[in-house]
Simulated scan of single mutants.
Amino acid sequence: MMKQFLLFFALIFISTINTKAQTAEISGDAFAHTYSIVARDAKTGEMVVGVQSHWFSVGPLVAWGKSGVGVVATQSFVNPAFGPEGLKLLDQGYTPEEAVESLINNDEGRDFRQLAILGKSGDNAAYTGQKCVAEAEHLNGDNFSVQANMMLNDEVVPAMAEAFVENANLPLAERVIAVLKAAQDAGGDIRGKQSAALIVVGPDKVEEVWKDKKIDLRVDDHENPIEELDRLLKTARAYEFMNRGDLAMEEGNVEKALEEYGTAESMFPDNLEMRFWKAVALANSDRLDEAKQIFDRIFEEDENWRTMLKRLPKAGLIDVSEEEMEMLTE
């Protein structure tokens, strides 16, 4: 009887030591208990990571991507090395499944990890460690993988997958916003909401590092991070038209610039800068009376834009005479 007792005690002791050893492997790792999606647009080849968590600034921890290579989401007790290392393995020719297997097999904290990798062809693989906090699971589909841990219920991941499939008509970034909203509507993170992020990379490799991410948005701390992420995406879309307007101005295509600026303004009519550059385009196309009406309303709200307008001739951004400039700024 005494021998059996001693054996039982020894087994408990060994089990406790093993548990402490495993926990030690993740003791310094950041939390990112969360839900996320990695996905590809079959039409454009763009790839995306979308994520939300009740944790400060989840984006830099979870979301990784490289144009022409793939995207990675690393979460739960985060091993941040999975991001750059996963992309490196994809770039070396590993399949997503091989990359996941290689990373997980070389990580002693594997039981606490959650990882998803998607390559440029849309192939994807995911892993959920057996000690990720419930509810925790992943689901792989055609050109996407959705994964979550520490959810309120087991309906979150299926809701994400369904939303991705049902919103195939949307651009990829907007499609992922719909997925994140579906996750939240299904219950989301059991702790609530705090931060979110969205990155989109292209189908082809780029030489200039600043062109690598086509969209890179973060909400580090907000009471409604997905709604804020949605707002930022809409703003980013509007500024895409502003950028096209700027390019048209550089090329001397005033009518094209006017069209692009007008589209941006229609998306955000209260944005003074969008209205300002539309007025500049009008002035450059000799539609001075229309331009002045817009400028006057802008100056009533903020006098700094009057000073700004006076500086444009020297920069070559507006082509009007001194008399015309005086008329526009009086």
Results as ranks from 00 to 15, higher is better:
Phe5Met: 14
Ala10Cys: 13
Ser15Glu: 15
Glu25Val: 05
Ile26Val: 15
Ser27Phe: 03
Ile37Arg: 05
Arg40Leu: 15
Asp41Thr: 05
Asp41Arg: 04
Thr44Cys: 04
Gly45Met: 13
Gly45Phe: 10
Gly45Val: 09
Gly45Ile: 10
Glu46Ser: 03
Val51His: 03
Gln52Pro: 00
Gln52Arg: 01
Gly65Val: 07
Gln75Leu: 05
Pro84Ile: 08
Gln92Thr: 04
Gly93Pro: 05
Glu97His: 03
Arg113Thr: 01
Ile117Val: 13
Gly119Lys: 06
Ser121Gln: 13
Gly122Val: 14
Asp123Pro: 01
Lys131Cys: 00
Val133Asn: 05
Met150Lys: 06
Asp154Val: 00
Glu155Tyr: 06
Val156Ala: 10
Pro158His: 06
Met160Ile: 06
Ala163Thr: 04
Asn167Lys: 01
Leu170Gly: 00
Ile177Asn: 08
Leu180Ala: 03
Ala182Cys: 06
Ala183Asn: 04
Asp185Lys: 07
Gly188Val: 06
Lys193Ser: 06
Ala196Pro: 01
Val201Arg: 09
Glu207Met: 07
Trp210Thr: 15
Trp210His: 12
Arg218Met: 07
Leu229Gly: 04
Ala236Pro: 02
Phe241Thr: 07
Asn243Val: 01
Asp246Leu: 03
Glu250Asp: 14
Gly252Lys: 10
Glu255Lys: 05
Glu259Cys: 00
Thr263Val: 15
Ser266Trp: 01
Met267Gln: 09
Asn271Val: 10
Ala283Tyr: 11
Asn284Gln: 07
Arg287Val: 02
Asp289His: 00
Glu290Ser: 10
Gln293Glu: 15
Ile294Glu: 11
Glu303Met: 03
Thr307His: 10
Thr307Gln: 13
Ile318Pro: 02
Asp319Asn: 12
Glu322Gln: 11
Glu324Tyr: 04
